[in-house]
Design a protein around this nucleic acid. Structure first.
Length: 471
RNA sequence: GGCGACGUAGCCAAGUGGUAAGGCAGGGGUCUGCAAAACCCCGAUUCCCCGGUUCGAAUCCGGGCGUCGCCUCCA
């Protein structure tokens, strides 16, 4: 039974979608004003696993991911670089999306951009104005926070607590310092669009309410993003949507799902601090499998303290999984369950994997079962069990489907086609030297092969060459 | 100051009332010409500290200490 943690209630609850068999999800994506770092990959990978598991549990999943392609910093950076806002946004978004594909993240059902959704945005603001939940002032339109009775219910804050700690620059146009902009009036040199309440551009929060409404209606089963979005972004989004669309007894969202931050030296990675580790670079140097696996090695709600050494260490474990795959990928299917502790690790793996993911998408536990399975398979296969090989193959395929695990051969991983001719020649020469009993020469050749970036392993059925892994 | 989360072996990390998964690193073996790979064995009488509840707590409650996130743009 799938259970999901919900930020609003602070509890893990059994999952049920409003429409049986169909789960809808909205995830806040990025504002592409600069290069993406590891932290930006986390929600994408996490939601990829969530989506895969929901589908595995029989749900049709409609996933909407947004890209905020107009915003203050985007405008700022574009002006600095002397390029159009749209061009800067598209460039960074394209790079981000390419990185996500490399990480094996499945495309969302809808990838929505704020600038392509001006109609629903304007329509939503008009509804808020008509209902008295918003007001025009100084060319802008603001949300009247006090018109919503339970403002703060998602982020567990009280209006009074917030007021005492306002750090927001006082804005003379606002009735209340906590009111926030739905629409920012036109300013010279900035992108703007026409609206009944004056030319301008959307505020940060309204786009998500509008796009969720457009693609999913007034109810969303799962709404996600980083924990840093809980306040004010999701709080504001929630009250906007409720004020505009819902009666007060329908919260509009089934489960708020927030992933923890990726930190560096104990501090959150952030574009503004510039302490992020460039994602593309990390993938380039360690491969997508390592990056993806590393992100899943910690439960999605926990903070992940990034360390390159930690990533490399985890990748070493993942290599064992890959080696098993190489050994069993051609094994014939085996259906009969195996007994004994080792046999059970193989036979029971599908159930254990599902159970782990059912428990609020516990990927570290799932990976633990995977490693158990790998060890059991290696042991039984060494003992000559064909059935173990068949079960291991099935299990690895299941893990690939559920976790997006990358197996050798799934995608180009450096020079996966085999060693270049000169290295292959060295390998052959070494094999001959070994046959002749000239071990000194064989060892020298192994050194030469390693210097070329390859490793030879002598197996019973002959030498195997593989690229030398990093570090 | 307010709100929220967290503190498990050298490192990473599951476990949230029934007697501590898994990975990496390390030590010892088996195998190997030597390696590598693989497998086997070894590590927390103990889960930040102090009280309490309970037959029983890493898990629940109270109090400390420490860390992080949010309260401003933020995945």
């Amino acid at each position: 039974m799938l259970a999901v943690y919900d930020t609003a209630t602070g509890a893990v609850r059994p999952f049920a979608s409003r429409v049986p068999g169909h789960a809808t999800a909205y995830v806040c994506g990025i504002t592409p004003y600069a290069e993406a770092h590891l932290g930006h990959a986390r929600p994408a990978v996490v939601w990829d696993v969530i989506t895969r598991h929901l589908q595995h549990r029989g749900y049709r999943v409609t996933l909407v991911v947004n890209i905020t392609d107009v915003d203050d910093r985007l405008i700022e950076r574009a002006a600095l670089a002397g390029v159009p806002v749209a061009a800067l946004a598209e460039e960074n978004a394209a790079r981000y999306l390419a990185d996500m594909r490399r990480l094996g993240v499945l495309d969302p059902t809808y990838l929505s951009r704020a600038t392509e959704n001006l109609d629903p945005i304007v329509a939503l603001i008009e509804r808020l104005l008509a209902r008295g939940a918003a007001y025009c002032a100084g060319g802008d339109v603001y949300m009247r926070v006090r018109s919503v009775p339970d403002y703060g219910a998602l982020s567990h804050r009280k209006l009074d607590d917030l007021r005492s700690g306002v750090r927001i620059t006082p804005n003379p146009h606002k009735e209340d310092p906590l009111d926030f902009a739905l629409w920012k009036g036109e300013r010279p040199g900035e992108p703007s669009w026409p609206a009944p309440f004056g030319r301008g551009r959307p505020g940060w929060h309204i786009e998500c309410s509008a796009m969720a409404w457009r693609y999913l209606g007034s109810w969303v089963d799962l709404h996600g993003g980083g924990v840093d979005l809980v306040f004010p972004h999701h709080e504001n989004e929630r009250v906007q949507t409720r004020a505009a669309l819902d009666s007060q007894d329908t919260p509009g969202v089934g489960y708020w799902v927030h992933n923890g931050m990726v930190t560096s030296s104990g501090v959150k990675m952030s574009k503004s601090l510039g302490n992020g580790t460039a994602l593309a670079d990390l993938i380039q140097r360690h491969g997508p499998a390592a990056v993806r696996g590393y992100l899943l090695s910690v439960h999605y709600r926990s903070p992940l303290e990034f360390s390159e050494a930690g990533l490399v260490e985890f990748a070493r474990g993942l290599d064992r999984v890959g080696r098993l795959w190489e050994a069993v990928q051609d094994a014939p299917p085996a259906a009969a369950p195996l007994g004994g502790e080792l046999g059970e690790a193989l036979s029971q793996f599908p159930l254990r994997l599902d159970a782990a993911l059912d428990a609020d998408f516990n990927t570290p536990a799932a990976l633990g079962h995977l490693f158990d399975m790998v060890r059991a398979a290696n042991g039984l296969i060494a003992g000559g069990s064909q059935a173990a090989a068949g079960l291991a193959r099935r299990n690895l395929l299941l893990a690939r489907e559920a976790l997006g695990l990358v197996l050798p051969g799934d995608q180009p991983r450096g020079a996966s086609a085999g060693p270049p001719a000169p290295v292959a020649a060295l390998v052959a020469e070494r094999a001959a030297a070994r046959m002749a009993g000239d071990f000194a020469r064989a060892d020298a050749l192994r050194g030469a092969i390693q210097a070329a970036g390859w490793v030879v392993e002598d197996r019973r059925d002959g030498p195997v060459v593989r690229p030398r892994s990093e570090t």
